[in-house]
């Protein structure tokens, strides 16, 4: 028996919004420690890794490890039927071929359940080693989203250059070129507005705007985003989900032929 409950549906809606543009389907691996999903996008260029800890749920029960392959488009249709302040419970029997989403209104007067067929997906888990990154940048998630959106107008790719002075995002194309420089902040009143750079070595890496923009769909989940970079390894874009877990996106850099 698997059962996981969240007291409002908003978080789950935001999580799904953060992954459904990159992935058509995904396998949710459930165990007593929580729920994990790892999947590459169709082009195998980026990887999504979602971790939701069991202690972050309002109720969590998982008697036996369970892998549930879900069509994320279908899941989105179902979650649309939930009000933001509904309690949502995800339920499945052991070895079941369906999963049930139950939504309960605040006053308990409306209870709805939606059963969805599960899919058998080929699982291709990548082993991601613990890596010490040359540069780790923490910045407001909204600012990162804004920069990715703005620079995508100029080029298909963006160059991220990180030094101890700051981080610079650049794009150039037919229209011209664009540069956005952010300096490390000191003494900001609010932690969520801070720009913090931890640098071992400076890095210059090029990434596809299209994917960065897809990652910023996670912006509503978190005030801050963390970018971890090293030469010639994938960038990690991490959004923390308060008290529940995190979503990490990995994007391979563009490399000269």
């Amino acid at each position: 028996m698997f059962e996981a409950r969240l007291n409002n549906a908003t978080t789950l809606k935001k999580i799904l919004d953060a992954i459904k543009d990159l992935l058509n389907e995904g396998t949710f691996d459930c165990s007593d420690s929580g729920i994990q999903l790892q999947a590459m996008d169709n082009s195998h260029v980026s990887l999504v890794s979602l971790t939701l800890r069991s202690d972050g749920f309002d109720k969590f029960r998982c008697d036996r490890n369970l892998s549930m392959g879900m069509n994320l488009g279908s899941m989105a249709k179902i979650l649309k039927c939930a009000n933001n302040d509904d309690t949502v419970t995800i339920k499945a029997q052991d070895n079941a071929d369906t999963v049930t989403f139950m939504f309960e209104s605040q006053n308990q007067e409306k209870v709805s359940d939606y059963e969805m067929k599960l899919m058998n997906l080929d699982q291709e888990h990548l082993g991601i080693p613990e890596t010490d990154y040359s540069c780790v940048v923490r910045m407001p998630a909204m600012e990162f989203a804004r920069i990715c959106r703005d620079l995508a107008q100029f080029s298909e790719s963006v160059v991220i250059c990180c030094t101890k002075e700051g981080v610079k995002f650049s794009a150039s194309g037919d229209v011209g070129s664009a540069n956005v420089k952010l300096a490390q902040t000191f003494n900001v009143d609010k932690e969520e507005e801070a720009i913090v750079i931890e640098m071992q070595e400076p890095v210059v890496l090029t990434f596809a705007c299209r994917y960065l923009n897809a990652f910023t769909k996670a912006t509503p989940l978190s005030n801050q985003v963390q970018l971890s970079m090293s030469a010639d390894v994938p960038l990690v874009v991490e959004y923390r989900i308060a008290e529940l877990g995190h979503i990490r996106y990995y994007l391979a850099p563009k490399i000269e032929d």
């Binding site: 590459m40 082009s43 260029v45 888990h125 990548l126 080693p129 090029t206 994938p234 391979a252 490399i255």
Partner: peptide, 14 residues
């Protein structure tokens, strides 16, 4: 020219 490399190039399948 810049080419886009796939994830598997960096991380081994578990």
């Amino acid at each position: 020219f810049l080419s886009q490399t796939a994830m598997e190039t960096f991380y081994a399948t578990r």
